[in-house]
Every structure is written in structure tokens, then in C-alpha cells.
Design a protein around this nucleic acid. Structure first.
Ligand SMILES: NC(=O)c1ccc[n+]([C@@H]2O[C@H](COP(=O)([O-])OP(=O)(O)OC[C@H]3O[C@@H](n4cnc5c(N)ncnc54)[C@H](O)[C@@H]3O)[C@@H](O)[C@H]2O)c1
Ligand SMILES: NC(=O)c1ccc[n+]([C@@H]2O[C@H](COP(=O)([O-])OP(=O)(O)OC[C@H]3O[C@@H](n4cnc5c(N)ncnc54)[C@H](O)[C@@H]3O)[C@@H](O)[C@H]2O)c1
Lengths: 208, 208
DNA sequence: GCGCTCTTGTGAATCATTTCACAAGGTAAC
DNA sequence: GTTACCTTGTGAAATGATTCACAAGAGCGC
């Protein structure tokens, strides 16, 4: 299949969220226009996005909310549980470990790691913080699919290398530093300081 | 001036980070190629990005590390201190309040708000959690420029409306819900569950 | 079955971003 | 000053994403 743009995947994810809301409100069908209004996009964009994956609607009527939800979950790979490990049990790692928003969408935090003896052994929302020495053996045992990197920037690459060697194929990095992964592994980064800098740019250029 | 693409601003921000590292290593000049290698882009992209704002290099030689840093800081509006308020002193709000990565880059957390009496009055890294009732009066008093929204999704829009009414022109939202702001206000969102869903999509489509 | 209305699915057109390619300008050695 | 060598800055080309516009279906009432 043709490569799909990341912007399209983002929007599919957003559509799914709205569909779930619509379903909760008891609606049966929805048009591309209604879906678009919610997500701040256009009906043509919605239809184009979906058309990459097939044809899900009925002309004249729209989309079945439940059928389209199911299809989107399938496309996005959300019909299953993904096991997530968090590396770094500091401020952000702990917040992530206790975040319900992940579990609710099929991402289960199966382990949290740190190397600080003061943190190892503590429990975060039912998950015990383990020693990072056990990272490699655990990842195989726990069948972890995704790793969240929440350690200081200096340690990030080395821990990425370790989780990759242990077989993890998808990584979400929170350290503000560029990282490299081998082909076949997907790496995404959330860089909050960068987000603030974009806001800073917007503030000083709001006059044009 | 012509509108600049967000992707360009992101990269400028990344260039600045590398320049600072280069400066720390004692380098005086840098070429577009060296700058590109660090950021995973191309030399042509670097030069094009910079060309939107002027001409900063010397042909045959490259860019002065310190002069380009200064120019980029100017362009991005980082030559000054931005005052930040955090709304919501829960898990993620507290992590953000204690995050040094902001202060280091000129973003100063001047206040944190919550409505839970159990949290109001506590101190997070030197900043006292205040009652959200004082939001409007404080924002003017503290000259807050940027607000971080770290409350549950249901409360997010209402708090965005309040900080906007109080004069904030830039917002970074962490609640996983779409929000609207009036023209003239910049809103960005960090949606971690969405990032995981993009990873999920990558995992199930890694074979093409 | 027919006509009316509605909405999809999709090529084509437009708009945006990235990459190419090279003239112009600068350094440095001799 | 001249030559050899680099690297920038930038139009033009290529690629990528979004928007347009409309034919093709599908439901519904009569
Ligand atoms: N706190 C935030 O709100 C925030 C926001 C954005 C980004 N970040 C980034 O997230 C990362 C963590 O930030 P934080 O604020 O949670 O810091 P923190 O100091 O609270 O936590 C870091 C944790 O990583 C652990 N650690 C360090 N090296 C390790 C190793 N080699 N193996 C295992 N564990 C190790 C430390 O023991 C500590 O518990 C940093 O890169 C930071 O820049 C933090
Ligand atoms: N914890 C995470 O790692 C994480 C990650 C991504 C996104 N988020 C999002 O960030 C938001 C906060 O998450 P959290 O995990 O910190 O939750 P939390 O429950 O720990 O914190 C929410 C805080 O907001 C406060 N609050 C609620 N309504 C308020 C109001 N009207 N005025 C002022 N304060 C109010 C609560 O008292 C609480 O202290 C949520 O929208 C969540 O989806 C959290």
C-alpha cells in the first residue's frame, strides 16, 4: 500500500475519538462534514483520508458510526492491547505511569525502570519500579511493544539502544535530544520546550 | 513578511540547540552541512530555512556560531523571559512545574493553579499552588504570557476561555481534547495518547 | 419505477514544502 | 593578484498535501 502521511494518521486518530463520543450520544450515522467540523478540518479531507484505506460510507447517507469506529481501530492497530514500558521513574516518568489516558486506549504500562535505588521498589499506580539492570530480560518476558523514554537527555540514547536490542520496535521519547534508531524501529519525540519556543515565535510575530 | 511554515520554526529551534552545543565545544563557525547532519535534515533545507529571515553566513566559510545563535534567538523571541502559568497541579502539572528544561530556556513558571483545597498552598519547586479563583487577577499582575493547561479534558475549554479573557495570547494544552481560541491567540496541543496511536499504526504497518 | 435529495469517492487542480543545482562571493595560500 | 577551493543564497524543479468539483450511488416518498 502507498505510504500514508503522518498528518493523515493523526487525523484518523482524531476521527476515532469523535466517533466514540458520537456513539456514546447514541448517534448511528455521521457524515464527513460532521466529522470534519469536530476536528477543524474539511469534509473533503475526511473523505480523502479514509479513501486511502477503502470505502466505508454509504452515498447519500454517511458513515455508520460503529462500523467506521471498528475500521479505524483496525487501521490504527488499536483492536489489541499494547504493552508499554517506561524507562525513568522521575517526575515525568511517574506522571506517565499513573496516567489513565493510556490504559483507556489499550496501552498498558507493564513495567517502569529506574537506576536510583531510592526509587526502585516503589509502586506507581500498581506497577512496581524495577531496576534498569533487568530491562533486557524483562522486555522479552513481558512482551513489551513500546518504550517511553523519560530519563535525562544524556542517558537517552544509551537506553534507546538497550530497549531496541531487547526487541522494542516503537519508542516515544520525552528527552529533549535527537536520537537515532535502526531501520525498522519507529521513534517519535515529544519535546515540550520546543513547543514553548514555537509559542514564543508566534508571540513575537503575531502582528503579521 | 511571508508566513513561515511551522516545520521551519521547529527546525530553527533545533538548529539553535545544536549551535549552543557547538559553542560549548568551542567551535567558532559551522556550515549548513554540519548543522543539517545533527538535525537529520539537509544542508539545502538549513539554508532555505535561514534565507526566509535574511542572510547570516559567509560564503566559503559558513556561519559564525555565536552570531547565528543570537540571530535565531532573536527570530524565535528567546532573547527575553516569558512568564508561564500552569493551570492544574495534578500529576502532569506538577511535573511541568518542577521541570528545569523550561527555566533553562527563558520560560519562567510564575504561578500554578488548582481548585482542589488539598493541593492549594503546597509548594512545587519554589512556586506555591494557588486557588484558581485568583487566575484572572494574577495573570494581569504577574504579566503571564503563556498558559499551560494541565486539567482534565472536561475542564480544559473553560479554563482556556478564562486565561484568554485574562489576556494570555499563547497556550500549550495537555488535555486530550480539541479546544478553540479566538483569533490572535495561539493554541498548541501535546497529545501523548495520540503519539502512542501513531506508534501503534507504525507497528501494525511496519511491513510496507 | 421515477424523480429528488443527499453524500460519498476520487481524479484534477491548487497550494505548500523540500530538493536540486549553480552562480556569486568569500577565504587562504603563494 | 591570481588561483584553487569552499560554502552560501536562491530561483527553478520536483515532490507532497490539501482543496475543488463533480459523477456515481443510495435512500425515500409517491
Ligand atoms: N518533568 C517534566 O515535566 C518534563 C517535561 C518534558 C521533558 N522532560 C524530560 O524528561 C526526562 C526526565 O525528566 P524528569 O523531569 O522526569 O527528570 P527526573 O530527574 O525527575 O527523572 C529522571 C529519572 O531518570 C532516572 N535515570 C537517570 N539515568 C538513568 C538510567 N541510566 N537508567 C534508568 N534510569 C535513569 C533517574 O534516576 C530519575 O529518576 C528529561 O530528559 C527531561 O528533559 C521532563
Ligand atoms: N499524567 C500524565 O502523564 C498525562 C499525560 C498526558 C496528558 N495528560 C492530561 O493532562 C491533564 C491532567 O492530567 P493529570 O494526570 O495531571 O490529572 P490529575 O487528576 O493528576 O490532575 C488534574 C488536576 O487538575 C485539577 N483541576 C480539575 N479541574 C480544575 C479546575 N476547574 N480548575 C483548576 N484545577 C482543576 C485537579 O484538582 C487536579 O489537581 C488531563 O487532561 C490528562 O488527560 C496527563
Amino acid at each position: 500500500m502507498k505510504r500514508i502521511a503522518e498528518s493523515t494518521v493523526r487525523r484518523l486518530s482524531a476521527y476515532l475519538r469523535f466517533l466514540e463520543e458520537f456513539e456514546a450520544h447514541g448517534h448511528q450515522t455521521i457524515s464527513s462534514g460532521e466529522l470534519a467540523a469536530q476536528g477543524g478540518t474539511t469534509s473533503a479531507q475526511v473523505r480523502k483520508d479514509l479513501s486511502f484505506f477503502g470505502s466505508f460510507g454509504k452515498r447519500g447517507l454517511g458513515y455508520s458510526v460503529s462500523a467506521l469506529s471498528t475500521s479505524l481501530r483496525e487501521i490504527l492497530g488499536l483492536g489489541r492491547q499494547w504493552n508499554v514500558v517506561i524507562v525513568g521513574a522521575g517526575k515525568i516518568g511517574a506522571a506517565l505511569a499513573q496516567y489513565n489516558g493510556f490504559r483507556d486506549r489499550g496501552f498498558k504500562v507493564v513495567a517502569v525502570y529506574d537506576f536510583d535505588p531510592a526509587r526502585v521498589g516503589r509502586t506507581l499506580d500498581g506497577v512496581v519500579v524495577r531496576d534498569q539492570k533487568e530491562l533486557e530480560s524483562d522486555i522479552a518476558k513481558l512482551k513489551a511493544h513500546i518504550a517511553l523514554i523519560a530519563v535525562p537527555a544524556e542517558a537517552a540514547q544509551q537506553l534507546v539502544d538497550r530497549v531496541v536490542r531487547a526487541g522494542v520496535k516503537a519508542i516515544l521519547n520525552f528527552a529533549p535530544t535527537p536520537l537515532t534508531v535502526p531501520a525498522g524501529v519507529t521513534l517519535r519525540s515529544v519535546n515540550m520546550a520546543l513547543e514553548l519556543e514555537i509559542l514564543s515565535y508566534a508571540l513575537v510575530n503575531s502582528d503579521d
